[in-house]
Amino acid sequence: MKPNFRSALALLFFCVAIFVLPLVLGGFWIRAFTSAAIFALAAAGVGLVYAQLGLINLSQIALIGVGGWIALRLNFATDLPVFLLVVIAGLGTSALGALFALPALRLRGLYLALVTLMVAATFQILFNAFQFPNGGSGFWGVAQQSGQAMRRPSIATSDAAYLAFSMVWLALGLLLIEAHKRSAPGRAWKMIRMSEANAMAAGINVTWFKIWAFALSGFLAGTAGALLAGALRQLDARSFTAIEGVLLFALAVVGGVYSWVGAVLAGVLYKLLPALLNNLGVTSDLALIVFGVALLHAIMTAPRGIAGQFEALFQRKDKA
């Protein structure tokens, strides 16, 4: 595919997602698509770290929770506009994401995966212990009864408008990744992937660029968390378990970590597929079986994910 054609397709996709979907979908599907867009944003972050540095991060779900916590906390403590809440949640979470990079400076592969899994499990416990703010008093802000809801921006108070709002954030997040890939950080990450000695010999500060990748991924998780808080109006600690973190990473790989399409597919699989099964009256646990099969498929035949397979299909057509 030619680069121009590719950009045109991306533009078309997001025009439909932002302007058409909110108009044509019904209430149930609007909420499902909103969740899918939000998790696609977070999946783009894990995918970035895996594609650029080959590092497995299973703690993204914890960072989504942290972003949601920051947004909710500020929502009740201040009158800042929602747009700012999302940005602040993103920045705050990216700082924590950078901290999560520290084990990645020494570990890789299975060991790093295990450490990030432990981090996710720790946060699972913390979320359960302290819950998410819902307008209560004190630092933790948890009211036992009749919690209050997260605000939405005045231009996006309806579910339909909030879907468009989330899609805009997804588009911005994916553009941010693309801008990184095409400039100095993208080049540095590729050099590091070749070998760290190669990167250092080229004058690249390996530590700095690894931390940067984790911080960027954390930023995307944080914005996703804040958007999720606005979408659901309240967050439930039970949504942020370590196992969900594993699932998010697995689906990012299944979707394909090398292009934005993969992140979108991950969001679709993670949130739309269970909704579809629910809608058909089948238990959404079936989705887990589908995920398992898809993961095996990806590991055995499609290292570049479903997005990579689409790409190969188009390239074959180009040649013909």
Partner: peptide, 19 residues
Amino acid sequence: QIVPDLTVRDHLQAVLDGK
């Protein structure tokens, strides 16, 4: 140490980025 998916120009650019 040549990266498969990086152009020759970008290899040199990556070195210049730090300089």
